[in-house]
Design a protein around this nucleic acid. Structure first.
Lengths: 339, 339
DNA sequence: TCTCCAAACTAAACCGGTTTAGTTTATTCT
DNA sequence: AGAATAAACTAAACCGGTTTAGTTTGGAGA
C-alpha cells in the first residue's frame, strides 16, 4: 500500500495525495481532501516517512547515547530528553554504550547511517577513532553533550552541572556536621565530572584547614558495586574516617551497604553524602543526604538545545550550566532520626 | 556526498559502488573494490541506509515500548533486548509510554511510519484505538509481547513469566516463616501480571488454610510511591498484619519506607517479600527477599523471538514462559541478621 | 466577449540508494 | 580460428515519497 495506490484509488496524482498527507492545503480543494482522507482511512494507509526523509534530508529522529541505563541517574535524564523530543515530533534512538567505546562507536556509526537529525551523547570518556570523528563532522549532524564533556567533540555545546560548586557545598556540609576525615569515593578518573567533583572536595578541605590526604581518595566507576568495594577497602584498612563524599548516589548505595555489613552506624560513626539525588535516595535506610542535580531538566534542555542547533537558532552553540542543591536527609545528620 | 559522487570520482557506475558498500563481491574485481574503498575512506562517505531501506523494505530498526523507564525492572530488560538487537545488527527505538495509552499510540504510529522491522511492547494495559490496531495489522509488522499480555494483540507471541507459580512460592515462604496475616500490595488491577500474582497469593493461602481477607488486598501502580501509600493506609487502619506480599520490588521499597517511618521492624514484626529482584534489592536495609525474574533474559529472548518472526523461522509464534526463583534475604528471615 | 488570474490539479524530475537486464572483454574449449 | 562461457561492468528501472514546472478550468473585471 503506497501513495501510488491511494492516488489511483482516488483518481488523482500522487502529488495531490502527498499534499493531503502533509496537511498542505495549497492547491487542493476541500472536497478532494476529504475524498482522499476517506480512502486513506478506509484502507489504513500509513505513509512511509523514511521514503520522504530522503528528499527532505531530515528524519525527525535523534540519537541519544548513555553509558549505563541501569544507573538510575540516566533513565531520569532520558525521560526529560524524551518528553522534549516528543513534544516537537521527534523520535529518540536511545542507546546504551555500557561505558564501552566500541559500542559507542557502533551506535554513532548507526546514527550517521540512519541520518538522525541530531546526536546527544554522554560519552564514556575514551577517545574514538579519528575516522569516525571525521565522518560525524562531515555529516554535519549537530551534537550536544549531556552532563559530561568529551574530548572528541571539543566544540560541541552541552548541558552541564557545576560539579565543583556542588562538591564544595557538599563537602562543607560534611565538615559543618563535624567530619574531619572525609574520604572521596569517585567515579572513573577519566571523566570530567569526577575530576570537577574532586576539585570541589579538595577546595572545601583547604578552606577549612583540613589537610588533604591522598590515601582518602579512591576512584572506581559510577556503580553500586564500585562504591561497595571501595568502601570495604577503606574499612579493612587502618584509615580512620568519619565522613564519605560519594561521587554519585549509586556509589553511596554501595558504600552504605558496606558500612552496614561492618555494622558501622550512619551517620553516628560515619556520615555519607551522595551526589545526584536519584529517586531511590529518599527511600534508603538511612535516607541519603545528597547534592541534587536537576536530572530531568538536563535531559529536557539538552534536546531543546539540540533542536535549536538543528534549526540554527541564535545562541544555540552556547553551553549551559545548571546548579545543584543540598538535600538534607538522615545519612549526615547525627541525632536527627527519620526525616 | 552520495553514492553518485563516489561513482563519479571512481569512474564507475553507482551499481558497482553499491555492490562494494554491501560487500557483495560478485561482479567487481578486487582492484576496483580497493579503489572504491580508498575513495570512500578518503572522503568519509557514509551510505544513507534509509534510502536503501525503501527498496529493501527493511530498516534494521526495532521499536520497543515500555511503560516506565524509571522502574528499574525495565532498564535491565532493555539491556537484554539491546544486546540481542545489536548482535544481529539491529538498532532499537526505545520508547517510554509513561503508562499512558496516548503516548503508547503515538509511538506505535511513529513505528509504522518509520517502518520498523518489528515491535516489542510491554503495554500499559488500556485498549488502543481500533484504527491504529488495524494499521499495525495491515502493516504486517511482527509484534512480540514482553512480560505483559495485551488485549490488543491477542495473537502475538511473547516472553512471559509464570507469575502465579512465583507468587504461590513466595507466599508459601511467608507462611512458612510464620506469617498468617499477609497483605497483597499489587500493581495496577488491569494488568495481567498483577492478576496472576494475586491468584498465586490466594492459592497459597487457601492451601495453608488461611482465610482470605479482601481488605488485605490493595492495588495501585508499579511504583515506589504506590507501595509507600498503600502500606501507610494499612498501617493507619486497624488491620493487624504480619506479612506483606509486594507485587514488585519497587512497591516493596515504598512499603519498607512506610514501615520504617512507623518504626515497625522488618522482619521481626512484619515480613516483606518482593517480586522481580531488581539490582537495588540486595542493597536495601533490610535487604529484600524476593521472587527473582530472569529480567535480562526476558528482554534478550524477546528480541530473539522477534527476529525469528521477522525471518519467519519455524516455531516463532509460540510464547515462552520463564520461571522465578526465591531469593532469601533479610526482609523475611527473622533473626537471621545480615546476609 | 475577451483577457487575466488564481485555484486545482497533473506530469515528470528528483532524492539516494538497489537490482535487473544487458554489454563488453578476456579466457577456455574444441 | 571460432564458439561458448564467465567475469566485470554499465545503463536504466525501481523503491515511495516530495517538489517543481506546467496545464486546465472557472470566474472576475474591463
Amino acid at each position: 500500500m503506497t501513495i501510488n495506490d491511494i492516488a489511483r484509488m482516488a483518481g488523482v496524482s500522487k502529488g495531490t495525495v502527498s499534499r493531503v498527507i502533509n496537511n498542505n492545503p495549497r492547491g487542493v480543494s476541500e472536497e478532494t481532501r476529504q475524498h482522499i482522507l476517506d480512502i486513506i482511512e478506509r484502507v489504513g494507509y500509513v505513509p512511509n516517512r523514511m521514503a520522504g526523509s530522503i528528499t527532505l534530508a531530515r528524519t525527525k529522529m535523534l540519537g541519544l547515547i548513555i553509558p549505563d541505563i541501569q544507573n538510575m541517574f540516566f533513565p531520569q535524564m532520558v525521560r526529560g530528553a524524551e518528553d522534549c523530543a516528543m513534544e516537537h515530533g521527534y523520535t529518540l534512538f536511545l542507546c546504551n554504550s555500557d561505558s564501552n567505546i566500541q559500542k559507542e562507536q557502533q551506535y554513532l556509526q548507526a546514527f550517521i547511517e540512519k541520518r538522525v537529525d541530531g546526536i546527544l551523547i554522554n560519552s564514556c570518556g575514551e577517545r574514538m577513532e579519528e575516522r569516525l570523528r571525521r565522518s560525524i563532522q562531515k555529516s554535519n549532524i549537530p551534537v550536544v553533550l549531556l552532563d559530561r564533556r568529551s574530548k572528541d567533540f571539543p566544540g560541541a555545546p552541552g548541558i552541564f552541572v557545576d560539579n565543583e560548586e556542588g562538591a564544595y557545598t557538599g563537602t562543607c556540609h560534611l565538615i559543618d556536621s563535624g567530619c574531619t576525615a572525609i574520604c572521596f569515593l569517585g567515579g572513573p578518573e577519566g571523566v570530567n565530572t569526577t575530576a570537577e567533583r574532586f576539585r570541589g572536595y579538595r577546595q572545601a578541605l583547604k578552606e577549612s584547614g583540613i589537610s588533604f590526604r591522598p590515601e582518602y581518595v579512591l576512584y572506581g566507576s559510577y556503580s553500586t558495586l564500585s562504591g561497595y568495594e571501595r568502601m570495604k577497602n577503606i574499612l579493612e584498612s587502618e584509615l580512620k574516617i568519619d565522613g564519605v563524599f560519594a561521587g554519585a548516589d549509586i556509589i553511596a548505595v554501595g558504600a552504605l551497604r558496606a558500612l552496614r555489613e561492618r555494622q558501622v552506624s550512619v551517620p553516628e560513626e560515619i556520615s555519607v553524602l551522595g551526589f545526584d539525588n536519584i529517586a531511590i535516595s529518599a527511600d534508603l535506610s538511612p535516607s541519603l543526604t545528597t547534592m541534587a542535580q536537576p536530572i530531568y531538566e538536563i535531559g529536557y534542555r539538552a534536546v531543546s538545545k539540540l533542536l535549536a542547533q538543528i534549526h540554527r537558532d541564535p545562541g544555540c552553540d552556547r553551553s549551559e550550566w545548571m546548579h545543584t542543591t543540598l538535600v538534607l536527609r538522615e545519612s549526615t545528620q547525627k541525632g536527627r532520626g527519620l526525616k
